[in-house]
């Protein structure tokens, strides 16, 4: 009746681009060397974390500086299951990682969502550093600064055991395993941000007071977003451990939270796809900058500065703006 208010759910660019990317991602292990495939695999894992983070930043307007906490919980829970229970099933890790990070986010969220802006950021940072110091000090549980080893797990309820060549297993079976979970995470997050709940979050981001006055319970919804966000990042942490083979307190440290912020700023927090693009791009940038120069952190810093100055909407935002201009559509503020 009124087509104007029923926009297509996915733009042609999204469908076309999405298909291309899907084919490319499916083909990676078949055409690329194991090292390349594993690099992409890390990127996919970070993309899940970035998606979770951006539910808070891009959609709810809350900048968390403590998402290392949930990534770390996902990783450490997996490591503790190995250490204390000897579990080897990836499915068990995934469920435990999601549940544990959601619980920690639920607890931390109660405190954090009472505040916004800088206060929110500082609280998330402070709470994540509590976990970091616990991981460092409780060495008989966490292995201290040495961390905990996590052997390559069995996949698909124990039916797919790791092969002798760990690298090949990770670059083939485990890669596809991560790819499937990545696709599921993207689908779930897409649904969440396009749901009435997602609209309510965006309303909170745009205008908290008004949101309250149309009947959105602002604090409660922020808390739910916080928990969902933490669970996504926790899932990423769980998927990351087998790739790395080891979890150390580094991933609970604030620098890792900063890295998640970097993913999302690089890709663009105003778009759904931005965090994914950013995580994949950052991962490549870092991998190659490290190999190219010992001053790789300087390179990353310069990239960030240039990016903020020239492409404040991030990579995905810039592509979107460009495609809009090419189609002659009006720019959106």
């Amino acid at each position: 009746m009124t087509p104007a208010i029923r926009p297509r759910l996915l733009s042609r660019l999204e469908v076309g681009g999405g298909l291309l990317v899907a084919v490319a991602l499916l083909a990676v292990p078949l055409v690329a060397a194991p090292f390349q495939t594993i690099t992409v695999c890390y990127g996919l894992v970070f993309a899940i974390a970035a998606l979770g983070f951006n539910l808070l930043l891009g959609y709810t307007g809350l900048l968390s500086f403590g998402h290392s906490a949930y990534f770390g919980v996902g990783a450490y829970v997996t490591a503790e299951l190995v250490k204390y229970l000897g579990w080897t099933s990836m499915e068990a890790y995934v469920v435990a990682g999601i549940v544990a990070s959601a619980l920690v986010a639920a607890l931390f969220g109660i405190v954090c969502v009472r505040y916004t802006r800088i206060f929110f950021g500082i609280l998330t940072l402070a709470l994540s550093q509590v976990l970091w110091s616990l991981a460092l000090k409780l060495f008989w549980v966490t292995g201290g600064s040495d961390g905990l080893r996590v052997p390559t797990p069995t996949l698909l309820f124990g039916t797919l055991a790791p092969t002798k060549d760990k690298m090949d297993f990770l670059a083939y079976h485990y890669y596809y395993y991560v790819l499937v979970l990545f696709a599921a995470a993207v689908a779930v997050m897409w649904l969440i941000v396009h749901s009435p709940f997602g609209k309510a979050l965006q309303a909170i981001r745009d205008n908290e007071t008004r949101a309250e006055f149309v009947g959105v319970q602002v604090r409660k919804y922020r808390w739910i977003a916080f928990v969902v966000s933490g669970a996504f990042t926790g899932l990423a942490g769980t998927l990351w451990v087998p790739l790395n083979g080891l979890t150390t307190p580094d991933i609970l440290y604030w620098q890792f939270s900063g890295r998640i912020v970097f993913f999302v700023v690089l890709g663009g927090f105003r778009t759904f796809w931005g965090p994914i693009v950013g995580a994949l791009a950052y991962n490549y940038l870092e991998t190659y900058a490290v190999g190219f120069t010992v001053y790789w952190q300087l390179v990353l810093g310069l990239v960030l500065v240039l990016l903020v100055l020239t492409l404040p909407q991030g990579l995905a935002g810039a592509v979107e703006a460009l495609s809009r201009r090419l189609r002659g559509a009006p720019a959106v503020a």
């Binding site: 997602g198 309510a200 149309v214």
Partner: peptide, 25 residues
């Protein structure tokens, strides 16, 4: 639409696509 979702108690729904709700639209 957000106001209507809130009034109808649908804002806690995470699993439906808002744009597909023709009653609200």
């Amino acid at each position: 639409a957000l106001t209507i979702f809130a009034r109808q108690g649908k804002t806690p729904h995470l699993w439906t696509v808002a744009a597909r709700d023709t009653v609200v639209a």
